[in-house]
Amino acid sequence: MITTTHYMVLLNAVNINLVAFSLQLQNVIGQVFAVFIVVVAAAEAAVGLGIILAFYRNKETVNIDEMNLLRW
């Protein structure tokens, strides 16, 4: 569960980088790209939390170490 909050921090770091370059290069495209990253982050949060809910219904856990259905 906590793991999914980490992605938001990662995407924020990328966004800061893009906005900083946008200012340095005086080009607005960096900010446009940052807007798209925000869109993708929102979509990812919705689907990711949906997956967590579905997984919790089946396995009664949200611990990532216990998610081993695909392991062989």
């Binding site: 569960m1 999914t4 909050t5 938001m8 982050a41 929102a42 949060a45 919705a46 939390l49 967590i52 809910l53 919790y56 009664e60 856990t61 949200v62 611990n63 170490d65 216990e66």
Partner: peptide, 19 residues
């Protein structure tokens, strides 16, 4: 996004300590 997270935290029972 944070409201979404808080909803899921409330829906999911996190009391059980992880093994």
């Amino acid at each position: 996004i944070v409201v979404l997270y808080l909803f899921v935290v409330m829906l999911v029972n996190l009391k059980r300590p992880p093994e």
